[in-house]
Computed example of a mutant assay.
Amino acid sequence: MEFDKVNAFLATAIGSLIFKWLAGGVSSLISWLNKTYPEEDFLVSKLGISTFMIRISHCKYKLSTKPYTKSNKITLMIFGTLVVTSSLIGFYKFTDLIIKEPITWLSITLKETRDSFWIKPENAENKPGEIKWSITPETCLNKSEINKISSIKEGTKEFICGYMLSNDKKAELSKESSKNTFYLLIVIPIFLLAIFSFFMLGVGMFIDLYINKKITDFHKSEIEKSYQYLT
């Protein structure tokens, strides 16, 4: 990814607003993670469970919480595994796409030639995994250099050079590139947040199993103590 335009965007009023919104969201999240309901105080004081674990389990607990049945445990483990696995795969594929695709370029596939490439006002180049080439305005003005590029069709070269050598088209391309950058800077955090939330949902299922077991073990321990007291 390129960060020069990202920093420039964050310096604008809209970028600053989005940054403040994200900072406010993080602050609210931290506050929520440290929150404990009165009926859950025994989890912290008697069972030693952190408020963080209680909150990300997505459940509210009471001292009278019933133990899970075997089928409950199996269901939570299966769904938890599926959710965690799918979110990790989604995170890997999404971040891989972000890293590979420059944020300040436009991705274009010409219908006429079926060639795919990245382009911005002063440069166009191949996508990852394809034969390496690069076209700049200087390349377009040098016939021998443009002829050396054989991995794309002539129609593609003409299209690219049409944008490289026209001030009006370069201005249009710059405008579209800025729109694309703005769009990605909004969409990327939203997608990552959605994937993270999905991942935490799966993790929460396993933590719920853990907390339920801790409560069950606590009740068993209290019953054993009462028997010892009676005897």
Rank of each mutant, 00 (worst) to 15 (best):
E39N: 13
E40M: 09
E40I: 09
D41P: 02
D41I: 13
L43E: 04
V44G: 08
V44Y: 05
K46Y: 11
K46T: 09
K46L: 13
K46R: 14
L47M: 05
L47P: 04
G48K: 03
I49T: 04
I49W: 03
S50N: 11
S50V: 04
T51W: 03
T51G: 10
F52Q: 07
M53K: 08
M53S: 05
R55I: 08
I56V: 14
S57H: 08
C59Q: 15
K62Q: 13
L63W: 13
T65D: 01
T65L: 01
K66P: 02
K66R: 14
P67I: 04
P67H: 05
Y68R: 11
K70C: 07
K70H: 09
K70Y: 10
S71W: 06
S71N: 06
N72I: 06
N72P: 03
K73D: 03
K73V: 10
K73P: 03
K73C: 11
T75G: 04
L76G: 06
L76F: 15
M77A: 15
I78A: 05
F79D: 08
F79I: 07
T81H: 07
V83Y: 07
V84H: 05
V84I: 15
T85L: 13
S86M: 08
S87Q: 06
S87C: 04
F91N: 10
F91D: 09
Y92G: 07
Y92W: 14
K93H: 13
K93R: 15
F94V: 09
F94D: 09
T95D: 07
T95A: 04
T95L: 14
D96R: 12
D96I: 08
D96F: 11
L97C: 06
L97H: 14
I98E: 11
I99M: 15
E101Q: 13
P102V: 03
P102T: 02
P102I: 02
I103F: 08
T104M: 04
W105T: 13
L106M: 11
L106E: 12
L106I: 09
S107C: 01
I108W: 00
I108F: 01
T109P: 00
T109G: 01
L110D: 00
K111C: 00
K111A: 13
R114E: 15
R114G: 06
S116I: 01
S116G: 09
F117P: 00
W118C: 00
W118H: 02
W118K: 00
W118F: 15
I119G: 00
I119P: 00
P121V: 07
E122D: 15
A124I: 00
A124D: 01
A124T: 01
E125T: 15
N126G: 02
N126C: 02
K127T: 08
K127M: 12
P128D: 10
P128A: 07
G129M: 03
G129L: 01
E130P: 05
E130L: 05
I131T: 14
I131M: 10
W133Q: 02
W133H: 03
